[in-house]
Write a protein that binds this DNA or RNA. Structure first.
Lengths: 352, 352
DNA sequence: GCAATGCTTGTAAGCGCTTACATTAGTCGG
DNA sequence: CCGACTAATGTAAGCGCTTACAAGCATTGC
């Protein structure tokens, strides 16, 4: 493939001495390759004097192990794959940032792909990352075809689910209970006296997090107003503009909802902006809530009442769980706590 | 669709049959390993009939090449490393998203690390990613020790600089002219009649983008009010809270600036929030501008006048440039256009 | 002082794939 | 129908590292 390199590359390629190999180091240090390898990978299996001599040579020659060779011989790459829906949403980007930082602390490197919330793309990415030598994977949410789980098991690739958590057995997960989190918020909304409540959610098919959040609102409605309580639900992909459009539709309904719970802050911020553009007051005319507690939520005016998701902890914990699994340790799922952040966008329903 | 995967890692590891190798496929298909390899990597060097037979066997056996072996033998990993300051800032996260999508389109995978704006950490990450087999690198900005560039050249690793661009020769870059972009905005500010102007910037040491933006404001000031024109400059790391604190300090100065240009939207949003908390009106009492045009900028109230940075184009172009370099093609730097987005946070100075 | 014991180090066999080169099959003009 | 030439396929040599096993060596107990 890489036949003739371009000007820049070929220049660099021209007179470049091949980088030193283990063998070169071994020869220079007057020991065997095995000893050099041990100095690097299991220093205490080599006597101090030898080790120092070898490491000095390593430093002098600027030796760095060849990745492919190491992967081939050791059957591991110290590389972890993560497939997240998108980095466009700050909550995932920041979770990933924390994940990467913690991985780095364990000598692991992060391989990234995004699925754009498309299950088949996610499946393809999973295969790609495994083919690229990922030693373990981080996946978001539980919803995916059984075949994917089977594949993972068959290949024996450890994986951790994040952004969701369920009691009982099942895949290892580091996340939070989406249903419980949203339920708490919805209960607060109903406790304020709202009756006409609507939800703007991401499409719930193939998305357990979104689905559980919606169900939580339905549960809360049933608890507050009996099984008959109906709430409108609008499903649109996560995007500010979609939140705005969905809100416009809801505000045109009769009777108009007095509270709109959104599936995440991005939708909520769009809804909020549109509401104000329509000349309505938040929360007097309508209350709006979000989910995630990203920066947008505090900046919005009025600031969004939302559910704070511990994205950084989640990323960090997931990374250290993976590190533990890879070093042969055992691991348990971790349930993290969310909390409701009360801000200006939620209030009691206005008296008509 | 829903699944209960019984993921016990140790279980999965127990009796797993080894995945098929090239040799297995070759034997099953009744050809040599070379032919199988060619079917996969250079299909047109194999006659159709053989190819179909081999590919069928590949599919049936679920063969996937061993990454390490491939990397070792082919001396390439189809993996690209990117080192960005942080994913916490949406502008980088989104640029990276576009970068990854385009890489995927070329069959390349993304390896990610973040430097937290620390040069030595960046240098370490560069070495790590190269050691991990990255075929090429994406780096942000030009500022880094000469030794790093030397190392890159010595190792013959192609790299592309993003988020900045300079005329003339030098490293390949896909970015925009930070100085020109900020100059345009600053000129508008001065044209409105502002005289007491301040800047809230990220620390400019080791950060060419930040530095050029500050210098652009100084240039504009000199052009508008003569060489003596002094503007206050506050340097704080990018963070909403830091923007807020810096703004509070500036608002306590006498004379109070009538316009504050911020190094990015994150700082600007913090500055804006604090200004309003202080009871001041934007833009009547003080104008505020940002840089990047992330979502926060439109959501802020008043919405931020800012510089729109084509993050997605940048990511995409950088990825395709890298793909071209790796396939032996030649590449040129790309200069992208920014544009000023006028919104409510900038106005003429209030008459005292 | 000698064998047993426990470390340290060396030897060498792969790991699975790519690819230069050798070999064989196929094509075509004469 | 044959020889020359080209296309298709096979052979086998690594790529650089890890690690099981072997060998060497210094202690230690008797």
């Amino acid at each position: 493939m890489l036949q003739k390199a371009n000007a820049q590359v070929s220049q660099a390629n021209r007179h470049r001495p091949p980088s030193p190999t283990l063998q070169d180091v071994a020869t220079a240090a007057g020991v065997s390759t095995a000893t050099v390898s041990r100095c690097l990978n299991a220093p205490d299996r080599v006597v101090a004097k030898t080790r120092e001599k070898v490491l000095r040579v390593v430093r002098e020659m600027g030796y760095a192990p060849n990745f492919g060779a190491q992967a081939l011989a050791a059957k591991r790459t110290n590389t972890i794959g993560a497939i997240i829906p998108t980095m466009e949403n700050a909550i995932f980007a920041r979770g990933l940032q924390a994940f990467q930082e913690e991985l780095a602390r364990h000598g692991l490197t992060l391989l990234v792909a995004s699925s754009s919330y498309q299950p088949d793309l996610e499946e393809e990415q999973i295969r790609t990352l495994i083919a690229r030598g990922a030693d373990a994977l981080l996946l978001i949410g539980f919803d995916r075809a059984q075949g994917v789980y089977d594949y993972l098991e068959k290949r024996g690739i450890p994986y951790v689910i994040s952004w969701a958590h369920r009691g009982g057995s099942g895949p290892l997960a580091v996340g939070f209970d989406n249903r419980a989190a949203m339920r708490l918020l919805a209960d607060k909304v109903f406790a304020l006296g709202h009756e006409a409540v609507a939800v703007i959610s991401a499409p719930v098919a193939q998305n357990d997090r979104a689905r559980e959040r919606v169900e939580a609102v339905q549960d809360a409605a049933a608890a507050a107003h009996g099984a008959g309580a109906a709430i409108s639900i609008v499903e649109v992909p996560y995007a500010i503009e979609n939140g705005a459009r969905a809100m416009a539709d809801l505000m045109a309904q009769t009777p108009r909802p007095t509270a709109v719970l959104c599936g995440n802050d991005v939708l909520a911020v769009g809804a909020l902006a549109r509401t104000r553009a329509l000349g309505l007051d938040v929360p007097r005319d309508v209350s709006i809530t979000g989910f995630d507690d990203i920066e947008l939520a505090q900046i919005a005016d009025p600031a969004l009442t939302t559910v704070h998701v511990p994205h950084a902890d989640m990323g960090r914990e997931a990374a250290s769980l993976i590190a533990r699994l890879l070093s042969g340790g055992t691991g348990e799922s971790v349930a993290l706590e969310t909390r409701i952040v009360m801000r200006g966008s939620l209030g009691p329903p206005g008296k008509p």
